[in-house]
């Protein structure tokens, strides 16, 4: 047995795992303490400030709890989730292939650069009324806005992920006689997957903003949704606690959807977090070495 065969270190049972567990517990405790301090401070502020300006935190939270049993609110929540899911699905289905195309064909990327740089900074909220005029109101409008706003982070992260693929990783497969498409499929795509996932997570939160924002701006005529619910609540006097209660739910929804995507990402790409090492802070192993081999780097870019 060669000597370098011995040090099989188990990642799961390493002493780092116990330390990481402790660190996680401390982080949770700190997070919960922060929330508790905020809630108490908000409650005290509510006692000092007139209820019409800032409702008491306890009132908001009890109203939020009440919304869990409110049929109207629940169907609005379901509609919001539906628009989010449909919109994100279309965003990913369009953004990932488009990003792969732009990321692997520099010519196409430069040709489309001007138009992309013009379209991207337009705030999607500014398009709400325009889109409702063009495609009409309802789910179609919300989804259109979500796709328009969400496609940029997906597109940019796919391209950044492809740019980040190690030239040595690609050359390795080329040296085994594989062609361009095979290199994209077998090396570039899996290597860029963590970036793509990040893009999808950003797109998800953008989708939720547009989802609720469009409902809020256009109101109930755009169909059900948390935005429409807030808009309705806002129209009645003295409903500030209800508006805030619905907003609290919108916040929880965003938190939950992001958590869902993080969880799914860890399941889909178990290698990614693990290969970063126990601290999770080191870069992809070997990435740092890239610059100290200028000859290889030059060869990689020249080819």
């Amino acid at each position: 047995m060669p000597p370098d065969l011995k040090p099989f270190t188990s990642v799961a049972r390493s002493p780092f795992a116990a330390a990481a567990g402790r660190a996680r517990a401390i982080r949770w405790a700190q997070g919960l303490a922060g929330v508790a301090v905020f809630l108490v401070a908000a409650e005290i502020a509510g006692l000092l400030i007139p209820q019409t300006v800032l409702p008491r935190m306890s009132t908001v939270l009890s109203q939020a709890a009440g919304l869990a049993g409110n049929g109207q609110f629940l169907s609005d929540m379901a509609a919001t989730l539906e628009a989010w899911a449909v919109g994100l699905l279309i965003t990913v289905a369009a953004g990932v292939p488009l990003g792969l195309l732009l990321g692997s064909l520099p010519g196409v990327r430069f040709a489309t650069r001007a138009i992309v740089e013009f379209l991207r900074p337009i705030p999607s909220v500014a398009l709400i009324l325009l889109v409702s005029l063009v495609v009409g109101s309802g789910l179609r409008m919300t989804v259109t806005l979500i796709v328009y706003a969400g496609i940029w982070p997906v597109l940019y992260n796919v391209i950044a992920g492809l740019d980040d693929v190690d030239p040595v990783a690609k050359d390795t497969l080329r040296a085994f006689g594989f062609g361009r498409l095979a290199v994209i499929r077998l090396v570039s795509l899996p290597s860029a997957a963590p970036f793509i996932l990040t893009g999808i997570r950003i797109a998800s939160s953008v989708a939720l903003i547009l989802d609720i924002g469009a409902g809020y701006v256009t109101g109930r005529i755009n169909g059900p949704g948390i935005g429409a619910f807030i808009s309705d609540a806002n129209s009645g006097a003295g409903n500030t606690p209800l508006v805030l209660a619905a907003t609290v739910w919108a916040g929880f929804l965003g938190l939950a959807l992001n958590g869902l995507l993080v969880w799914a990402g860890d399941r889909l790409l178990p290698w990614h977090r693990a290969s970063l090492g126990p601290t999770g802070q080191a870069g992809v192993p070997g990435r740092a070495q890239r610059l100290d081999h200028p000859e290889a780097a030059a060869a990689g870019t020249a080819s």
């Binding site: 040595v168 990783a169 050359d171 040296a175 090396v187 899996p190 070997g286 070495q289």
Partner: peptide
């Protein structure tokens, strides 16, 4: 182009082996 039955080993195993 890359000839058949060629084997290549690069210095940076961490970059040429695929972590996934």
């Amino acid at each position: 182009r890359v000839p058949g039955r060629l084997g290549v080993v690069f210095q940076d195993y961490s970059r040429s082996l695929y972590p996934w």
